[in-house]
Amino acid sequence: MRDFSYLRAASTEEASQAAREAGAMLLAGGTTLLDLAKCGVAEPDTVIDITHLSGLGGIAVDANGAMIGALAKMGEVADDPLIKAAFPAVAESLSLAASQQLRNMATIGGNLLQRTRCTYFRDPAVFPACNKRNPGSGCSAMGGVTRNHAVLGTSEACIASNPGDLALALVAFDAVIETGSRKVAADDFFLLPGHTPEKETVLQPGEIITGISIPASAAAKNSTYLKVRDRQSYEFAAASAAVGLEFEMDGKTVRDIRVALGGVATKPWRARAVEKALIGKVLDLVAIEKATKLAMEGAVSHGDNHYKIDLAPRVIARAIMKVATSNVAPSNVGGLA
């Protein structure tokens, strides 16, 4: 790691001010920043520790929704009984991420800012070309080993996948990311790589995430997070889905459905085409299969990652089936039992 100076911020304002300086970086859980500093990807001159700030933690849940402080730990939120009850997909996305040690360190705010696991991005000594690290230098991943790279939302500049789990659940349930100065819909918070893959979110220099609000909804309450990966635990997703579902009173027609995809896209990916195809429809296996395929419209593979195009719709389908049968008598749902 580069030699840096360490500043323990006394207030959010002080942190924000200090973070505006060139070379300054905020330190919360540290699980991304210190990791990338060791890889030589992050080279801060000043590290501003915000973990001791008060007022940025806490979890509050009421009938309208949840408010989660930016410094709440992933593990804390994953185990919160109210979050588990009102937003199962949120809790599950967190408990299936990383390991308990990392979840005890990483904050909710920091988790949204975790960087890609693209191995080319993480190895600057051997692969100097990376548009994310060094805009305009090229992309080393293209033409290389791409098994874990994105098939959705890619550009000619970058095919790195977003590694998030929680972010999917937030995007699916219309969460709002709050900073000191504004509120941004989660789906708008993350940026597609386009020509500027170095810019991953809308955050401005010095802008600090203070919290996340998630509106309550029937779909969020009846939701799940499904993560498929090579290893049973402690691994990023090959493909994952956050899905929530609300039926009409008949118990079989879809009133509201939310679908977001992970492990396959350059940003947490809301699959609105799938949602649109199913809303108002009677949910059955044929409808699900037809709809989930829509998630892959426009997908582009780069050799090794082609399997994701087949896998992701199956993950969504399984997740939909799970929430469709979870608290509704199976007899009410045609062909799903």
């Binding site: 360490y6 323990r8 330190l27 859980g29 540290g30 699980t31 210190l34 990791d35 590290v47 520790d49 973990t51 593990g75 390991s99 308990q100 040690q101 990392l102 005890n104 360190m105």
Partner: peptide
């Protein structure tokens, strides 16, 4: 942060000491 060998407790919670600054 990939193996857990450095696990210790900070305020009784298990964490990875390799991704924690001593100053923190």
């Amino acid at each position: 942060g990939q193996c857990g060998a450095c696990t210790c407790h900070v305020d009784d919670k298990r964490v990875l000491s390799c991704l924690t600054l001593a100053a923190q």
